[in-house]
Nucleic acid binder design. Structure first.
Lengths: 259, 259
DNA sequence: GAGTGGTCTAGACCACGGA
DNA sequence: CCGTGGTCTAGACCACTCA
């Protein structure tokens, strides 16, 4: 059985923190390994002799720290941490595309985790103002918008939305769910836009509630937002990709000359 | 007066989310500017006609996003944000050093904020294992360790610790508080190590309590950690710099070829 | 249907901050 | 002192999951 301890009224920490500390210790010591189910709220209420809100506040603290994930109707589970993915700036190397690998898959191979993609949706819409500006398109121009979610070993680690000018994407596999070997970039190059360079803008913040749901993270887990613009050899922007990554699942690596 | 809206029972979002959305909107549109006090819990309860827990859940959502900070006995306030600093990967360009500007100062000039540096300390110590490895030094080798804190318009935005092999730094201005025109990198180049390239590793996480104090941020505000290694033209590592940045004060920009 | 977590109500007492 | 947020109680109904 699990040693949950009990509440010490002399302790200067409030009960909910003591409960959180007990559970946190069970997790950090491995008594509650990743994927394991925590005692249910009802069990915790009975064990500690407190009201439901008190137990929920403790659980919420752990959720905020990203230690546990609640699944409605099932229980609260110790979060399985995704393997860290190192993203080097050569991950879009043409050599990978030539071998028919999209960036995420090529990188997964190096990191040694099982990659996955789901929640793919493809629509054609008017470009949001900021996207139109980055793509140097007139206001209201139409773009193909590709959303998807990436998984590592079954755990969500990133959501991504790509915007490609309709003039480039129309009639290609870019508008179908499966973009074919080498991914979007391979299709863009087939349209006569050989890729020349990328720019990336990186920052970090707390996730919105929607992002928390999509990435299955607690309120206390920050995300890295990375916006990448791909340019062809004529320095024409051909794609903007906005990604939101679970911070602890990524290390971004860049290499640049001193000039 | 503030337009708080009201709860729509037909809306499929639960009331606490609707309240959070209303407040979030007031903040993002500037109706509630940074530093401003939100309506008190009691006022929100009266306005929306809900129980206190419902209001608190809405506020907690905003706290989790780092949008507001609660101060016991005073109220809930919109978090004030320092000016955003854009860090382009050419910020270490030799041209800046030639003009006698260190990277932080050169970049401040572009961003238009008043830069500051304080809490400077310089010591010589045994290199931590990870640093020694990055600098390709034998275990236990001695390095000059320079710590400092950077400010933008008087607000702390970053702490940084540089490690330079003693063999390079000894006897130069690198070991004094004021490193002279062009900063550390100018001194390293004067020692015959012309800089060739940099690598940077970027990730994000929640701050430790010490970092919260140094950067004067509340819990709920993530930090970006950036570790940079500088290499000379012989590809010898000459400096490792570990920085911790307040996430919302920075946008990192990188530009790299498609290859 | 039983068990789970999600949301909500209507109270209560406490600790902190400022007038 | 009064208004603020912090913590807690003891219930309620709902939506989801799984057998």
């Amino acid at each position: 059985m699990l040693d949950l301890g009990s509440i010490d009224r002399a302790d200067d920490r409030p009960p909910y923190r003591q409960i959180a500390a007990s559970l946190r210790r069970l997790i950090s010591t491995g008594r509650l390994p990743p994927g394991e189910k925590l005692p249910s709220e009802a069990e915790l209420i009975a064990h500690y002799g407190v009201a439901r809100m008190t137990v929920r506040q403790a659980l919420q603290e752990l959720r905020g720290e990203g230690l546990v994930v609640a699944e409605h109707g099932k229980g609260v589970f110790v979060r399985s941490t995704p393997p860290v993915r190192r993203l080097a700036s050569d991950r879009f190397a043409r050599a990978h595309r030539k071998q028919g690998k999209a960036a995420f898959l090529a990188e997964a191979e190096v990191s040694g985790h099982k990659p996955g993609v789901d929640q793919i949706s493809v629509t054609t819409e008017q470009a949001p103002a900021e996207i139109a500006e980055r793509l140097r398109l007139p206001e209201g121009a139409r773009v193909v918008m590709r959303s998807r979610r990436y998984l590592a070993n079954g755990t969500p680690v990133e959501t991504a939305v790509s915007y490609i000018p309709e003039s480039i994407a129309a009639g290609t596999a870019i508008v179908s769910t499966d973009t074919g070997p080498g991914g979007i970039y391979a299709r863009i190059e087939e349209q006569g836009h050989q890729l020349g360079r990328f720019t990336e803008q990186v920052t970090a913040r707390m996730p919105t509630p929607e992002e928390r749901r999509a990435l299955q993270i607690g309120a206390g887990v920050p995300v890295i937002t990375l916006t990448r613009t791909a340019f062809d050899l004529d320095d024409l922007p051909v794609e903007v990709c906005e990604t939101v990554k679970v911070s602890h699942a990524f290390v971004l690596e860049y290499d640049f000359p001193a000039r």
